[in-house]
């Protein structure tokens, strides 16, 4: 049904001191399990190693993010998510777990711009300590009034994930923070 499928805000973009872009359909799978024994199954299905606390690991076209002591979020191709959830369920058979396709429950944004401006824009909306956010680490926090997760893809790109229903709010919030004239010059 991919021809009928639409992300939360297809094509939404805004410019300013940094650029904000909705990234379109993104596959996501929630896995809840005892992470101390799920590494093998994870590796088999996603190709990725078990991430450290708050960490992210790379697999073959997949990425695995640590969500909580018994929860992972797997990023993959949108069309592959259903199969991945089933694959995890199969691989973890006999073991207490929950694997479910949640691709459509969320929205993802890319923020690109000069390193300092990027952090300035994010610092307008999150109480998280951005200086303490190492590359490859995902921080679950709030963007003003809603829950979100964010990480730095590189020095000049950050990613933000939020729930689908508040995608418009998060986009408006980021676009407003990135508006020209709003440079802070702190980071």
């Amino acid at each position: 049904m991919s021809d009928l499928a639409r992300s939360a805000l297809p094509g939404a973009e805004a410019g300013g001191i940094v650029s904000v872009r909705e990234m379109g359909l993104q596959g996501m799978v929630t896995l809840r399990a005892d992470l101390s024994v799920a590494a093998k199954a994870l590796k088999k299905v996603t190709g990725a190693a078990m991430p450290e606390v708050r960490g992210m690991t790379e697999g073959e076209g997949t990425r695995v993010a640590w969500m909580s002591p018994d929860e992972l979020l797997i990023l993959c191709d949108h069309s592959a998510a259903g199969e991945m959830a089933r694959g995890l369920t199969e691989a973890l058979k006999g073991q207490h777990h929950l694997a479910v396709d949640v691709s459509d429950a969320r929205a993802m944004f890319s923020l690109t711009g000069e390193a300092g401006a990027l952090r300035d824009v994010l610092a307008k909306v999150t109480p998280a300590d951005l200086a303490a956010l190492a590359p490859g680490e995902m921080r679950r926090t709030r963007l003003q009034q809603v829950a979100a997760a964010l990480w730095f893809e590189s020095g000049t790109e950050a990613r933000v994930v939020c729930f689908r229903s508040v995608a418009q709010y998060v986009f408006d919030l980021l676009a407003l923070s990135a508006k020209d004239g709003g440079a802070v010059g702190y980071h």
């Binding site: 606390v53 708050r54 640590w66 909580s68 002591p69 109480p127 921080r139 679950r140 926090t141 709030r142």
Partner: peptide, 11 residues
């Protein structure tokens, strides 16, 4: 104690 984040009360 689970994720090690020094969380602000608003979180």
């Amino acid at each position: 104690p689970y994720c090690g984040v020094a969380a602000c009360e608003t979180e």
